[in-house]
Structures are given as C-alpha cells and as structure tokens.
Simulated scan of single mutants.
Amino acid sequence: MLATDVGFVAYFTVTGLGLIPPEWAFAGYTDPVMVAWNWSFLWIDLAAGATGLTSLWLLRRAAASAAGTTLMLVSLVLTMASGLMAVAFWTLRGDFSLMWWIPNLYLLLFPLPAVVALVVRPPGRPAT
C-alpha cells in the first residue's frame, strides 16, 4: 500500500515534468483530450494516496486506530475506483496495451483482500 500511495504522487510528478519516454506512453499521449483524461485522475489518485499515507501513519502511532483503519478503507476504495475507471476507458477504446493494463489492473485488484477483511471484521471487533 505504501508503494502504491507514493507511486500516485510519483506518477503525477513524472508526468507533470514530462519525463515519461514516448515509447512508454499510452496511445494518444500528446492528444489534448487524452492529456485532459489523464490529468482527470489527479484528484482521485492524490486523495487515495493522501488517505492511504495518513492511515499508515495513524496505524503506526496507535495499533487499533479506528481513524487509521477507516482512512485505509477509503484509500483502498479510491484506488480500486481509479483502476476501474482506467480499465473501463481502455476497454471502451479497444486499446489493450499491457504497459497500461497491468498497472491499472493492479490498482483495481490489489485492494480487494484488504477491503474484504476491513468490511468483514471492522476495527475493534475481535476475530472469531
């Protein structure tokens, strides 16, 4: 989770500085509509990263922090939404580049086990 949340910030930093090599870029990377589409993820990705990093910080300070686990759930759901939005977009476009599908499928799927665990056994409820 830490790597993913830092990755959100790193991706938009690298993108903003124009450091992604053209051969690694997605189809239409310089098209103004595609640029706007890509930047439309900024707020959901930064919200996912900020809530995730804050949750990890809170949980390090207090192991049973309800605020930390709640923020973790928010972060994981935002991460899944971001991945789903990208995968849906690439599906609608019929663009199946593994270079962009793999990271977005990761964003969609990696949170699932933690989301299930947090929903099935909410913070403060003992394991049965």
Rank of each mutant, 00 (worst) to 15 (best):
L2K: 01
L2N: 05
D5E: 07
D5H: 11
D5F: 14
Y11E: 00
T13C: 12
T13D: 09
T15H: 03
T15K: 05
L19H: 03
I20Y: 10
P21G: 05
A27E: 07
G28Q: 06
G28A: 06
T30P: 01
M34C: 02
M34I: 15
W39C: 06
W39N: 13
S40I: 02
I44F: 06
D45G: 03
D45S: 10
L46V: 10
L46I: 10
A48I: 07
G49L: 04
A50Q: 03
A50P: 05
G52T: 12
T54N: 01
T54C: 11
L56S: 04
W57F: 12
L58H: 08
L58R: 13
R60T: 14
A62W: 04
A62R: 14
A62Q: 14
S65Y: 14
A67S: 14
T70E: 02
L71R: 06
M72K: 09
L73F: 11
V74Y: 03
S75H: 02
V77M: 09
V77D: 02
L84C: 11
M85E: 13
A86Y: 14
V87D: 02
W90I: 01
L92F: 11
R93C: 01
R93N: 04
G94M: 08
F96T: 14
S97H: 09
S97W: 13
L98S: 12
W101C: 01
W101L: 15
W101R: 00
I102Y: 00
P103H: 01
P103Y: 00
L105C: 04
Y106E: 02
Y106N: 11
P111R: 09
P113D: 04
V116W: 06
A117W: 07
R121I: 08
P123M: 08
G124N: 10
R125M: 08
T128H: 06
